[in-house]
Amino acid sequence: MKANLDLPSKLSLVFFLWVCAFTLPWTFQVGLCLLLVIARFAIPAFRPVSHRSAAAFSKFILYSITVALLVTCLNALFIRSGNVVATLLGFSFYEDGLLFGLRTASRLILLSFSVLMFFISTPLTVFIDYLQSKGLPQYLVLMLLLTLHFLDHLPSRIHQIFLAQQARGAPVDSGVLSRTRALLSILSPLVLSSIVESIERGTALELRGFLSRPVASRKPEDTETRVNLLTICFYFMSLVIIAYSIYRWLNV
């Protein structure tokens, strides 16, 4: 039995964190978020796979702090029930709103963190390969890989069309209605060119017999057949927390 943090165990960790986000008090959730931040630097399996992922993580931390402050303050300000906790510049902050804001912010951040940690530390191609090994059809795998190709090219294509339409005098800077109509002048050439490209690619795939070829079943890799101790631990802890939450709910 192995105990390294591979892809299935990372998925089980995400599941465990989702369970925690819905069952544990907000103070635990904040603690788990801090642990995840430490894990990103301390555990090799959680290191970002690219500079882009690392930047996304740093941006998300700053974003989370801003959101937590904003959500907590706004709820404390708008939900006017319970005692007044503080008054600042004539604005009163209420206890119930403050607690609701803290609970919401910590759950939102923990849920988002768990998903983000998984994706920044797992290359998409590895994840797609894992899904294929679990039975995802070959054409869906190709579709996801083609999406990555389009995602690389689409922003520059949109920018190019936008500049061209602007040069032709499309109303890209006038009123909201005119700008909404200008959307069509950008989307039309984009969709048209994509259909032409799709037909070319589709024809190429058909000529190669991709869509009619029987798919060879993949042999499960050696690592997949072994049980990972961490995966079992995370699922077991999740079940314990769920059972305890149900027990507490029934007694209340």
Partner: peptide, 27 residues
């Protein structure tokens, strides 16, 4: 079948980048 597979891939990318168009047009 045929052109549908690449077209769906394009539309997934369009969903993800539509925000770029609306931001450019300030809609």
């Amino acid at each position: 079948t045929g052109a549908a597979l690449p077209f769906v891939a394009f539309c997934i990318a369009l969903n993800l980048t539509a925000g770029q168009i609306t931001a450019a047009l300030k809609i």
